[in-house]
Amino acid sequence: MCATQFGELRRNYETIEASGLSIIGLALEETSAADTKKFVPSMGGEPPFPLVSDVERVQTKGFEQTTSYLIDADGVVRQVYPMLTYARGSMRAMLRDVERVLADG
C-alpha cells in the first residue's frame, strides 16, 4: 500500500473501528501476497486490517486501482471513492456514509 494511504488509515483506525467499519486492503495486478509481505515494513509495519491479493484479477476485474469501495452488510457496493485517503476531509465524509449505511440496517 502506498505509504500515504496506509498512514492515513492507520491514523484514523480507532475512529474507523469505532464506527463499525472493517477494512480490507486489496492489492491488484502486480502485487502478490508475497510481494505485500515484503513491503509491509516500509508501510510502517503490520496493518490492523487484512491485506489480500488478486494478481490474476480473477475475482476483482471490476475493481480499480487506488480506489475504495464501501460495501454494506449484504455485499452491495454503496459508494466508490477515488483516492479516498489523499483528500483532506475525505475520511470524515466517508465515515458519514458509513453512518448512513448502518442506519439503513
Partner: peptide, 12 residues
C-alpha cells in the same frame, strides 16, 4: 457490518 475495500499498490 460495512466493509471498506481499499485497493493499492505495495510498491508506491
Amino acid at each position: 457490518g460495512p466493509v471498506l475495500i481499499v485497493t493499492y499498490r505495495a510498491h508506491w
